[in-house]
Design a protein around this nucleic acid. Sequence first.
DNA 1: AGTGCGACCCGAACGC
DNA 2: TGCGTTCGGGTCGCAC
Length: 272
Amino acid sequence: MPEIAEVETVRNTLKKQILYKKVKEVQVLYPKMILSDLEEFSTLLKGNQFVDIKRRGKWLIFELEHHFLLSHLRMEGKFFLKNSKEEILKHEHVVFSFLDGTDLRYHDTRKFGRMELILKEELATHPSILKQGFEPGDEELTVEYLLEKFKNKNIAIKTLLLDQSIISGLGNIYANEVLFASKINPFKKGKEITKKEAEQIIKSAARIIKRAIELGGTTIKSYTSSLGVMGRFQQELMVHKQEGEPCKICGSFIRNEKINGRSTYFCAICQK
DNA sequence: AGTGCGACCCGAACGC
DNA sequence: TGCGTTCGGGTCGCAC
């Protein structure tokens, strides 16, 4: 599942691969993936070029001359650079062919990812972009901000960490890791989170995301960066997918319980 | 307003 | 060459 660190890795990789290449042709093999008008999508991209790639939370923002192409990878979306001659695979749903004989191909086994082409001035008011909260490492992500967001919340802190309008970019992997590092029980309600705990969340999230980006993200079954390189943060996971393994701090078994339908990995001893 | 949950997808894992 | 069922997971939209 690409989260902020994985999306950042994809962004960095693609920036080295596709900037300033002229788009010759666009093929959309699964139309539902494109939220914009399909005809317009292809027409506007043809002859255009990507001049930069930005990111907001888990959203990739490809910059064109007068437009932005928004792309959300959801769970299994990946971009690959290939030779145009290679046969198009079953799960390659959008193909951008460049004049130089290469393709940027969007691959998504579960077809959950979405793309949308918007005018540059529409970015600031785009609902999905607009709702994003501050990111781990942002100066504005303060204790006061978090406590205000957690105030009166009767839902589990784990669920709140997945809320993109509070902290932008965390998914299941890093939400689990941040709570372990912060020694907070994932079932604890938002309104019960103390100042000290909010401080821990801020520090842990910044440190973990920074480290994960350095290591190229985490590779969980479905995810490889566009180069196909394995994210090495996998080796530093403390609780995520570690069910039944001994806690690296206290040795008791890591548990997996559902919170709001999502697998939640934690150490019941370390996370009181 | 806050909260919960089904839908969207389909390969993998599971049950028999 | 086993086959049918369940599961998972980010986000949205809807129900309450």
